[in-house]
């Protein structure tokens, strides 16, 4: 564990020293400021005169859309941070000096993973709390389950970065990045397929989407994040509207992921990590 911690610390330090993190933080602040301006306009001009319930519903919906875009940027950043994690060490040769020390390749890989998970969780917690706080100050609205949102958003990113780490043990950063981002997009499309399948009663679409969701549970975790931002009133409306309403909208979820699906996701992450260690151990360096 001590050796894993050395690499986790190294990963954190390395990330924090890179200028890209500063740029990412700057962009986050910019997005938060812009969303505050947008929300304020929405409340004071666009929705002026609407009932408080409608305003709440509209704000909650806009917030879900903002957070969806945010989840996208987060996944993108996770991929670009992770794909060079192992491949970069191998390409530059820094791995040679490190791995000749009394540490195993599993230590390096798990340390990198842990460092990236901590970084992700911290960033998600800080950035989403800031966004929620700003929305609250500007509009008076708070999402119903902010902690649950942080959990699911982190889980979605961890799914992506774990896959990126596996790919990193075999492929050069650019090729790996393209593959993981492609998979992330496919998983999102799988989620859309499930919604469409339900909306138009096409079983094949729903089955296909479910298979994708099992193979890469990132979109499944996003549904949990979306659910945690839906106020009870909005959920009630969606339920009342039935299939004709927003229930099957790709950014919406009528229920949080089932316990069994959460267990599947945890198992998936562990299995991919194990596969990554296996793959790294067999890699010639």
């Amino acid at each position: 564990m001590k050796k894993i911690a050395i690499f986790a610390k190294l990963t954190l330090r390395e990330s924090l020293r890179k200028k890209v993190v500063l740029v990412l933080l700057g962009l986050t602040v910019l997005v938060i400021v812009l969303s505050a301006v947008g929300m304020s306009r929405l409340v004071n001009t666009g929705l002026a005169g609407s009932s408080p319930g409608d305003i709440r519903a509209a704000i909650s919906f806009v917030l879900i859309l903002i957070m969806f875009a945010y989840s996208f940027v987060l996944a993108l950043s996770a991929v670009f941070f992770t794909v060079p994690a192992i491949a970069g060490d191998l390409e530059t040769g820094t791995a040679l000096a490190i791995l000749s020390r009394p540490v195993s390749r599993a230590h390096l890989l798990l340390g990198r993973w842990l460092g990236l998970v901590v970084l992700t969780a911290a960033y998600v917690a800080v950035a989403s709390s800031a966004e929620f706080l700003v929305v609250r100050v500007v509009t008076g609205y708070s999402p119903p389950h902010p902690l649950m949102f942080i959990f699911y958003m982190t889980a979605e990113t961890v799914v992506i970065l774990t896959l990126a780490l596996l790919v990193s043990t075999r492929l050069a950063p650019v090729a790996g990045g393209v593959i993981v981002l492609g998979s992330f997009m496919l998983a999102w499309m799988g989620g859309v397929a499930i919604s469409l399948g339900r909306q138009f009663s096409v079983q094949a679409l729903e089955t296909g989407g479910t298979v994708t969701r099992l193979m890469l549970p990132s979109d499944g975790m996003w549904k949990g994040a979306a659910y945690s931002l839906e106020p009870a009133a909005l959920l009630a409306t969606a339920r009342a509207q039935g299939a004709d309403g927003i229930a099957n909208f790709p950014f919406f979820s009528l229920s949080p992921p089932a316990g069994s699906y959460l267990a599947w996701t945890a198992g998936w992450i562990l299995a991919i990590l194990w596969l990554a260690i296996w793959s790294f151990n067999r890699r010639e360096i």
């Binding site: 530059t92 040769g93 820094t94 040679l96 000096a97 000749s100």
Partner: peptide, 13 residues
């Protein structure tokens, strides 16, 4: 054991 690899690269940052 100490080791100086032929490809000597250390964390540039």
């Amino acid at each position: 054991i100490g080791y100086l690899p032929e490809l000597f690269r250390y964390q540039a940052w």
